[in-house]
């Protein structure tokens, strides 16, 4: 039996489908159309409401495979990897893409070993080779200094994780039709050697920089911790999250979950604003795929201006309060 079809691994939380799933559907739809094959969304969970699964069809899936089991309520490596391995062996898709989230980047590498196939991490581009139908995977590496094009010529499925927010989700089309299929997996194979005891949600709402549409980040230019407060205020006005450079984190002005860059998080928000950040290679590696980049720095030679769509050379202590004031004025209107 040969390998056919494109799969995306959707993600859910408490039965709600996460938006990264819809981003994957957009990528998957393009690939499936080029190959002329079906696009399947796979959802694992405890209980998935029919209308939520239907949304996956509206947003591009031809078929939804859902496996429901209490062991799949939360992401844990053993049950997720086992379930996916079983499904892959059952249906043999030629391509499987997952999101490069904490879930996707954990389940995919284990699955690639199980299925004896290649995996390309954190792709920003996916395409199909018109000649042979192979998946062409593009990803930044070495701190974003190079773009590598990678193929998996002889192993199936071809697997990739895709950088979250590197593309928009597909808008729903309520006329689309598709099949929703419940599949079962032997519960004995969903046993986990890891138990989830508890979950501590981040109280600090501004720290989820990876999911945020807007991230405003600060660096050494802020001079001291107290000065970081205005960054939080502007972030709140924009409905965004607060990021920080490695220096700012090492100085204790922000905690590690806020750190952007090579030794922190790679982000692709709709808007990234770097304030008082010179733009080290390591920091820029974490922001390069942002849709819009704004920079404020008093040094006209600052590297961050090279990647900025809009920059102001000026003292952040003069510029940022003005930005705050103008945003407040707009909010009042």
């Amino acid at each position: 039996m040969s390998y056919k079809g494109v799969w995306i691994l959707g993600e859910q939380e408490a039965g709600n489908i996460k938006s990264v799933s819809y981003e994957l559907l957009k990528r998957g739809r393009e690939l499936a159309d080029k190959l002329g094959v079906e696009l399947t969304a796979v959802m694992l969970g405890k209980k998935m409401a029919r209308e939520r699964l239907q949304e996956l069809v509206y947003r591009g899936a031809d078929k939804v495979i859902v496996v429901e089991d209490p062991a799949l309520e939360y992401f844990l490596p053993d049950p997720y990897v086992n379930a996916m391995e079983i499904l892959i062996n059952r249906h043999r898709p030629e391509i499987l893409i997952a999101s490069a989230t904490s879930t996707g980047r954990t389940v995919a590498p284990a699955l690639a070993i199980r299925c004896n196939t290649g995996l390309t991490a954190d792709c920003t581009g996916l395409d199909i080779d018109a000649e042979n139908g192979n998946l062409i995977q593009t990803r930044p590496a070495i701190g974003g200094n190079i773009l590598a094009t990678i193929r998996t010529p002889n192993h199936r499925p071809q697997m990739a994780t895709v950088r979250p927010h590197s593309n928009k989700p597909l808008d729903p089309d309520r006329h689309r039709t598709g099949r929703i299929i419940n599949e079962s997996v032997d519960p004995a194979l969903l046993k986990s050697r890891t138990k989830r005891l508890e979950f501590k949600k981040n109280e600090d709402a501004g720290s989820n920089i990876q999911d945020a549409e807007i991230v405003i980040a600060g660096g050494k230019g802020f001079k001291k911790e107290e000065n970081f407060r205005i960054l939080h205020e502007v972030a709140a006005l924009l409905g965004g999250a607060v990021g920080a450079t490695r220096d700012a984190v090492d100085l204790g002005w922000a905690t590690y979950p806020h750190q952007v860059g090579l030794s922190g998080k790679t982000i692709s928000p709709k808007l990234y604003m770097g304030i008082g950040i010179s733009g080290s290679v390591q920091h820029l590696a974490g922001i390069k795929t942002s849709e819009n980049i704004i920079a404020v720095n008093n040094d006209p030679e600052a590297q961050i201006f090279r990647v900025a769509d809009f920059g102001i050379v000026g003292d952040l202590f003069e510029v940022l309060p003005l930005i705050k004031q103008k945003l407040q004025a707009i909010k009042k209107q």
Partner: peptide, 27 residues
Amino acid sequence: PTRVVKISTPQVTRNGKLLTPKNENEI
């Protein structure tokens, strides 16, 4: 299983707009 088939250096410069205000009004 994977093969790196091409390496390119991404163009990082976005040629954005850069303003250099000199006084309060310009800021």
